[in-house]
Structures are given as structure tokens and as C-alpha cells.
Design a protein around this nucleic acid. Structure first.
Length: 296
DNA sequence: AAATCTCCCAACCGCGAATAC
DNA sequence: TGTATTCGCGGTTGGGAGATT
């Protein structure tokens, strides 16, 4: 048998929350903590479904939320993260302390999309608007999250993203992949990820495509580190899959994307979290960070 | 001043993954 | 092991607020 129903929809309030409801929810969570959203409304004396309580708390009532306008740095970080992750708002929010996925999603739809269009960039692909149509049909398209190759040896792949050149360094142990059963963790037909117009992985790796997993899980970590602060040899010491995107035009943006691709059943690589690199203090680090800024 | 339009954001909806039973 | 439910996510929408006519 399964669980009992989540809530009685007939007896729940909908729409905007009142101050009294907010206060009840705050008081309850302060004394009991988060969790068990299903039973929370009844225990807290709220005529709301648990789902609604959770949303209200996460998006509006949480004490650590940052209020106010987004800064220019936050704008740029969102753009960069979106170019890497697509509409993975919760992942993006995880790298912006005090911001929620809903807030970032709204902000993206109302401000940043327009900003990119003004810059002549396609908000979904992050490529020049007039070039999107021609390149999306080209075979050169390389989709990170649905990559048709796994990277089981150290290799360098030059990629081009927008006007900037990146270098993809994939390092993985064969055993870290799960015999073709690993998945990307992204099942929705996400908006097109960055259209990387350089060729897909070199032929020498192609044989792995059929035998191993069809994609690399990029869900767990992504960070910005100062260019060259992580050397290849340092990275190679990790026995987990790790992809570095090295931005070569450092004079434009002196940061390096580090995407820790973590196949299931393997330890998380020692990638440096963006929280740390942005100089956040202990209390501000995200849940994925250990106290030295590395991913747990 | 009133009507209409546009923008923005909080909240809802539906789905897939994870989990309890 | 199979099924039902919860949780969490991304897409969408309703309506309030401000701008424009």
C-alpha cells in the first residue's frame, strides 16, 4: 500500500497568502524546522496544502532570502550559468545565495531575455540571433546534456561558444560510468543548450558511445574559478569524471567554468564551488560545499 | 479621471523522480 | 517488487500595480 493522500483539496485555501497565514507558517517552521510538508499545514493550523506551504516558505518567507534588485554581477552569472545549464533554475539558484529558482526564472523571463536580445543574442542558445538558424541545423551542434559520447580518456576538445572559445577537458575513469545506464538527470526537452559549434568528440572516443552511457551528468556542480587556478595535473588526480571548460579569452571574463560531471555511484569530484570562488564565507556556502570550498 | 494596456511576480499546475508502504 | 504518494522542479497563469492613452 502506498501513502495516504497529500491533502484534502476541498478544504484548502488558494491564492495570495495573508499575513496571518505567513506568520503561522513562520512560527511553525521556526519551532519545528522544515520538512514533512504534508503534515505541516494541519500541525500549523493552516488551510493550505503542503505543496503550497513549501512554495511560500522557499520563495518568500525563508529568512536567508536576499531581497532587492539583481546586481550586474548576478545578471552575468545567471547568463553564464544558463548558457551552461539551460533552464535548470534550481541549479542556477543554488549558485546565487539568497535567490530562489522562481525568482531567477521570473527575472530571466522579464529582464535577461530582453537584455540578451538587445545584445543580439538568442536567449535560449546564447548565440548570435542571426546565426542561430543556420547553426542549429548543422551537424556541428554539440549538446552537453545529451552528448552521444562518453569521455573515458583524457582529451581536449576545442569548442566555440558565442564569440568566445572554450576548451573542454574531459577526464573520466571507465569504471565511473555505469554501463550505459547512467543518465543525465535531465529528462525534459530542455531548451537547446549552448550551441557549441566545434566538432563533437574525436573519433578515437567514438567506440565508447555504444558501450557506455549516452550522456554525462552535469547536474551536480558547476563553478567559476579564476583561470588556470586548477591545472590539468591537479584535476587528473581526481578519479571521477570532471570536465573543465577553460575560457581562453580571460581578458574578457577572467573565470573558468568547472563542471563536475558526476556519474551515479561515483564519488563527487573535488571541483571548487562557485560559492567559494566568489568569496562567500562559511555561512554563505551552498549545501554542496565543504568548508574548504570543494564539493563534498 | 477613467479606461486600457503592459509589466511583473507570486502562486498554481502537471510531471518525473524518489520514497514509503 | 509493485503501487501509491510525496517532493521538487519547470512551465504557465492570474491579477495587482504602474504607465499610457
Amino acid at each position: 500500500m502506498g501513502r495516504s493522500p497529500c491533502c484534502e483539496k476541498a478544504h484548502t485555501n488558494k491564492g495570495a497568502w495573508t499575513k496571518e497565514e505567513d506568520q503561522r507558517l513562520i512560527n511553525y517552521i521556526r519551532s519545528h524546522g522544515e520538512g514533512c510538508w504534508r503534515s505541516l499545514p494541519k500541525s500549523a493550523g493552516l488551510l493550505r496544502c503542503g505543496k503550497s506551504c513549501r512554495l511560500r516558505w522557499i520563495n518568500y518567507l525563508r529568512p536567508d532570502l536576499k531581497r532587492g534588485n539583481f546586481t550586474e554581477q548576478e545578471d552575468e552569472l545567471i547568463i553564464k550559468l544558463h548558457s551552461m545549464l539551460g533552464n535548470k533554475w534550481s541549479l542556477i539558484a543554488g549558485r546565487l545565495p539568497g535567490r530562489t529558482d522562481n525568482e531567477i526564472k521570473n527575472y530571466w523571463n522579464t529582464h535577461i531575455k530582453r537584455k540578451l536580445i538587445v545584445r543580439g543574442l538568442d536567449p535560449q542558445t546564447h548565440r548570435p540571433l542571426n546565426a542561430t538558424a543556420s547553426t542549429t541545423t548543422a551537424n556541428s551542434k554539440f549538446d552537453f546534456r545529451n552528448a552521444s559520447h562518453s569521455y573515458s580518456t583524457l582529451t581536449d576538445i576545442d569548442l566555440t561558444m558565442n564569440q568566445n572559445t572554450f576548451k573542454l577537458v574531459a577526464m573520466a575513469d571507465d569504471s565511473s560510468f555505469d554501463d550505459g545506464k547512467c543518465n543525465s538527470g535531465t529528462t525534459e526537452e530542455a531548451p537547446p543548450p549552448p550551441q557549441l559549434i566545434q566538432p563533437p568528440p574525436p573519433p578515437l572516443l567514438a567506440h565508447h558511445a555504444d558501450q557506455n552511457c549516452q550522456s554525462i551528468n552535469l547536474d551536480l556542480s558547476i563553478g567559476l574559478v579564476p583561470f588556470q587556478s586548477l591545472t590539468r595535473s591537479e584535476s587528473a588526480n581526481s578519479n571521477s569524471a570532471e570536465i573543465e571548460l577553460k575560457k581562453e579569452q580571460e581578458e574578457v571574463v577572467p573565470y573558468q567554468f568547472v563542471v563536475a560531471a558526476t556519474p551515479s555511484k561515483t564519488p563527487v569530484p573535488q571541483a571548487v564551488c562557485v560559492c567559494w570562488q566568489l568569496g562567500f564565507q562559511r555561512g554563505q556556502l551552498c549545501s554542496n560545499c565543504s568548508t574548504n570550498g570543494l564539493y563534498r
